[in-house]
Design a protein around this nucleic acid. Structure first.
Lengths: 194, 194
DNA sequence: AGTAAATGTTAGTCTAGATTAACTTTATTT
DNA sequence: AAATAAAGTTAATCTAGACTAACATTTACT
């Protein structure tokens, strides 16, 4: 049970009093998952917003043809949840699965509302986190329409070099919205170029 | 100068005291734009978050090949801004242009921070607005990868029937990430089917 | 070390959607 | 009402990326 990384992360952005820290600590829970386990399954209600202490998760959607589409990866110091399900407490559209052994700090929807009320600084901080995530999400939509698969891959590699290393290529292909075969082709093409 | 619709909109979600309403009124400004005018231009800093009273705007990105990609339309009771530019006060990636004569209520970044501090209920409300927008944006990414152009169009038509009516088809094509010629083909195909 | 499972590659064929270009229809302006 | 511009259509050709399938390599398990 190591929740220190969450405090370090929050301290980088807001200053909490020691009472506030104690209150925060009382509202979070720690949990370990093994590689392959699910944090959320499509159809369940996403009860928690989770902060990744160590490990990595993938959030994906299974379409009507049974195909997996990865929405995001979450590594250390990132948040993960099916946000739509979490905020409305209705069944999730996405699966969140650990692709490594993963340690999470989890906050329930009721507890996070309490935290927001008691510690407005935290609500401000989370609002900003979400604003940034929304701006990033809009840019990703633009990239999906205006860039070729190859350029999207080069962008991904440039932006998340660490993540590229630790994740199987076929998952990166899914995240980029292409097949693993085509990503393989793109990579050999890139190698030929240099 | 008619800011009443903003109050009506906010009243549907949070209850403000009359002092709070007065303070809010002192922090917003009203502005009329003609069809074709720009609220924000790529490269400028997006100074305001705008609430649409009447009319319609398109938010679009011009890529390196000079092609327009529409990110969103904003009609009555919607907010519009280049969020990335607004929150960091750095140059905008997007253009926001009025495609009808448009009335906006605009709030500057400093003023909205003041509002959040003085009226925490408003911060809570906006956090929720943004959370919902982020969940919707993630779903749009999934749709762009898992649905055909035709299905994306049918989804758009189903979800925003009013918007489909008032916007030229070539802009809808741009929003859907396809050419106007292909949307035309899709529409004639749909007509043949029924 | 040897086998099975997971991951990645290569190549051929196919298709959704882009591009080009000529044409039609609908709005706007004078 | 004519002229012009804006929006939408049709059809032919082209291409990025999907799909299929066989094969190669790496990783994990006994």
């Amino acid at each position: 049970m190591n929740i220190q990384p969450l405090f370090d992360y929050i301290r980088n952005h807001v200053t909490l009093t020691s009472e506030e820290e104690t209150f925060l600590a009382s509202k979070v829970s720690y949990r370990k998952y093994l590689k392959g386990q699910f944090v959320v399954q499509q159809g369940d209600v996403c009860k928690y917003e989770s902060f990744v202490i160590s490990g990595c998760t993938k959030t994906y959607y299974v379409d009507t043809e049974g195909q997996e589409h990865i929405v995001m990866f979450s590594v250390e110091e990132w948040w993960t949840a099916d946000l739509g399900s979490f905020i409305t407490q209705t069944p999730a559209d996405y699966n969140i699965q650990c692709i490594e052994n993963t340690e999470l700090i989890m906050i329930s929807s009721d507890d996070i509302e309490e935290l927001y009320i008691k510690i407005p600084k935290l609500e401000r901080f989370f609002r900003r986190v979400i604003e940034r995530a929304l701006a990033a999400s809009q840019k990703r939509i633009i990239r999906s329409f205006s860039m070729s698969a190859k350029d999207r891959f080069l962008y991904f590699r440039e932006k998340y070099p660490q993540i590229e290393q630790r994740i199987p290529q076929y998952m990166i292909a899914s995240y980029l919205g292409i097949t693993k075969e085509f990503l393989s082709k793109i990579k050999s093409q890139i190698i030929l170029e240099q």
